[in-house]
């Protein structure tokens, strides 16, 4: 019996012949680990890049977004559980080669290709080939990921990625184990490594009532962010909506999100946003130097943009991000 051990993520699944990894999309076939989802997306859509959310990366642009089934975490609140917690044979999809993905992005006027919705780590090989084809055609690559990955594949990914948004789900080991079925340490390492390698990074924390919504949670998270990746990494706090295995909880109250944002700003984080709350001041970008409104957003649409050459159009302060 030929066993294999997957080395893609910290789970390190040891698989007998015919067994699949925890992610549901990698299987030991004949003593070789095979990805079951190469070229088989189950979701594809053109989205505004603000939906990922990326607020400091090519604002107002379109992103060709795709995903396969599977995920190496099992968050109780996953809004995409109907693909992330499914095996590939349980969903409808079509074959779509990396070259076809790039052509679709170009024909839809997309500046970026986003591997998103589920978890690009588990369709690593497909995402990597898409990225290489994209670069040959001047299309940029972004990931939306939970960051639960081993260092070697992470370093390879950072060589072909232009930006990455990490779901910074919580600041305690208990949260990661109880709610996500994973662990905190690898995610912290991922975030630090991304910053060290200079790939554009934004962080999102989904605020879940009774699980990670105390002032203590926000303080610990923000202090860690400032100390380890600096105050200029945009941090988004998003409103939770009851779904999947947490339908018993109420949506996140606005006061919790406001508390999160105020806490983050008081700890020195310069760019703090609120997600899933339309028409809120927390959707806008303010210059960290002069305090003027420099990007106004309505939903996912950019309604005003006063950034000129990557700088505040009022005081000339450099605004971190990629603007053109």
């Amino acid at each position: 019996m030929k066993k294999v051990r997957c080395l893609l993520c910290p789970r390190g699944c040891e698989l007998k012949e015919g067994e699949r990894g925890n992610c549901r999309v990698r299987e030991n076939i004949g003593g070789r680990l095979q990805t079951l989802v190469y070229g088989k997306p189950c979701a594809m859509h053109v989205d505004p890049i603000e939906k990922k959310p990326f607020y400091h990366y090519l604002p107002g642009s379109l992103s060709f977004s795709l995903a396969t089934t599977g995920c190496n975490l099992h968050c109780l609140y996953c809004q995409n559980w109907d693909i992330s917690q499914k095996a590939p044979e349980e969903t409808a999809g079509r074959e779509f080669s990396p070259a076809e993905v790039v052509q679709a992005a170009l024909s839809n006027g997309c500046r970026t290709i986003a591997c998103t919705y589920s978890e690009p780590i588990v369709f690593f090989e497909y995402a990597a080939d898409i990225a290489r084809a994209a670069r040959e055609n001047n299309v940029l690559n972004v990931w939306v990921s939970a960051g639960y990955i081993n260092e070697r594949p992470l370093l390879e990914a950072l060589a072909f990625l232009d930006a990455i948004k990490i779901d910074f789900k919580g600041i305690t080991e208990d949260f990661y184990q109880r709610v996500c079925g994973g662990s905190l340490g690898p995610v912290l390492n991922t975030i630090k490594t991304i910053k060290q390698k200079g790939v554009w990074l934004e962080l999102v924390n989904l605020v879940v009532p009774t699980y990670n919504d105390t002032r203590e949670d926000f303080l610990r998270m923000c202090d860690w962010v400032v100390e380890n990746v600096g105050p200029d990494v945009p941090l988004h706090f998003s409103k939770f909506w009851p779904t999947y295995k947490l339908k018993n909880l109420p949506p996140t109250p606005e006061r919790s999100l406001i508390l999160a944002r105020e806490t983050a700003m008081s700890r020195g984080i310069n760019y703090v946003y609120l997600g899933n709350i339309p028409e809120h001041d927390g959707n806008n970008t303010y210059c960290a130097a002069c305090g003027k409104l420099i990007i106004a957003r309505s939903g996912y649409a950019v309604t005003e943009n006063s950034i000129i050459g990557g700088k505040c159009g009022f005081c000339g302060n450099v605004i971190p991000g990629r603007w053109e």
Partner: peptide
């Protein structure tokens, strides 16, 4: 039904060898 779905899935598509794994002895 799940077995039939799985059989159809495997019959209709080839798979690619994954990266980042190792074969275990024994």
């Amino acid at each position: 039904i799940p077995l039939i779905k799985r059989a159809i899935f495997f019959k209709s598509s080839g798979h690619k060898e994954a990266r980042y794994y190792k074969k275990l002895a024994g």
